[in-house]
Design a protein around this nucleic acid. Structure first.
Lengths: 222, 222
DNA sequence: CCGGAAATCCCCCGCGCGGGGGACCCGATT
DNA sequence: AATCGGGTCCCCCGCGCGGGGGATTTCCGG
């Protein structure tokens, strides 16, 4: 089965270079060449290539915007590979947020570019190694579970439970109802929590819980 | 310049397979083979290889733990590549948090493994394409700036300012002091904020601000 | 010039909250 | 048996808070 590819770059020279690279592969067919992002979007919608190789810098609509538009349309099954000369962090993050299947530098050896197209076509993703390293660093910090503060261990299970409900901005009465206990009980628990954690009031408790990732938008994978 | 490599895997067969692969490259020298994580840590500390290729599953100390120990020691300049049979999400995240330079599946073609070692040695990172795709997805959500709720536009600049201070768990009096205005003024602002955002009290405001990323642990890169 | 929006300040009132007590029950540990 | 920690419930008191009013200034745009 042959893979169809769309090329988008405002430099004709680079386009022909890429086309030449792809032409060496019998199973890759370059079905379109465009010079700007808007054309890329419309041509992708028309031709539905397997993979679109977009330059980041393009007139009218840059590669990032084009990626977003292409992937925003669920009718498209085209995978997007982004190509750039320099690897600016901002680009990478936006590209990945937009759902690009790859982020590659133009310095990439031809055979690896070809391999990247195949990888993208089968639904996997590929990032330039020099970028990956920084991506990891960034990812690690965003993953970095704020080290659970030790004073949290002072809390009993019940108290932690109450803390979470407080963090969700529930009033004592609401918490009482939810736990099927009296509101005086809840007050006791809250007081203990505040005392143990050294917090002034429930407002600080809410901030504390969020800052320490007890409630944040935690993904399932812990 | 030749690169030194340490191999760690509890299966002797796999080790010899890897060694055979590396031996085809004149510039790669496999300087040690170990069968468990603890041995990997001590041998890395002793031999200081350029790259350590660790299996995830190993006796005594798994590859993840070994990675953490190796990279925790600043005296080590060894890069770590992790090898695994199956790509469980948990592994990937822990591996990247620990600072591994690569996360590869054992199904990787030999030549790409070699290339991965070279990539790691020069300080870049490499992740198996099939894993990268999910990594991106996960990364995207962690990057995804919670779309600023539209009702936030209703607030005046001053009100947003006050909201941020409220979100930081400051009392009205504290906010007043910080803004050099009377506390009655702050009360007015807070009331307006609550009304405009449809929040019950400042506790909800704190939660709101955190959930919507107005205050969260945002990285510098936006 | 005049209207309105924004920012500032003021008063009163009711309520939720948090601290400081005390009390009871239960299960585990001593 | 005595003790202790945890969970539950209760009362009182003071205060910060939030809603409801109203008032002033400044500044901008019709």
């Amino acid at each position: 089965m042959t893979l169809t590819v769309l090329l988008a770059d405002d430099h004709a020279m680079l386009r022909s270079g890429l086309r030449a690279i792809f032409d060496t592969q019998p199973d890759l067919r370059c079905v379109a060449e465009v010079a700007d992002g808007r054309a890329a979007v419309t041509e992708v919608a028309r031709l539905r290539p397997d993979v679109a190789v977009l330059d980041i810098r393009m007139p009218k609509l840059d590669g990032l915007g084009a990626t977003e538009m292409i992937l925003a349309d669920p009718a498209n099954r085209t995978k997007v590979l982004l190509l750039t000369t320099y690897d600016t962090d901002e680009y990478v993050y936006r590209a990945l947020s937009a759902g690009a299947s790859g982020f590659l530098l133009k310095s990439l050896p031809p055979e690896e570019l070809i391999s990247a197209v195949r990888v993208a076509a089968r639904g996997d993703a590929l990032i330039d190694p020099s970028v990956t390293q920084r991506l990891i660093a960034r990812f690690a910090v965003s993953l970095a579970t704020p080290p659970t503060p030790p004073e949290l261990a002072l809390l009993t299970a019940r108290e932690r439970e109450v803390l979470l409900l407080v963090a969700a901005a529930h009033s004592n009465a609401e918490i009482a109802a939810q736990l099927h206990v009296g509101d005086e009980t809840v007050k006791t628990h809250v007081s203990r929590v505040l005392a143990k954690l050294g917090l002034r009031d429930r407002v600080h408790a809410v901030a504390y819980a969020h800052v320490n990732g007890l409630v944040g938008t935690r993904q399932p994978g812990r």
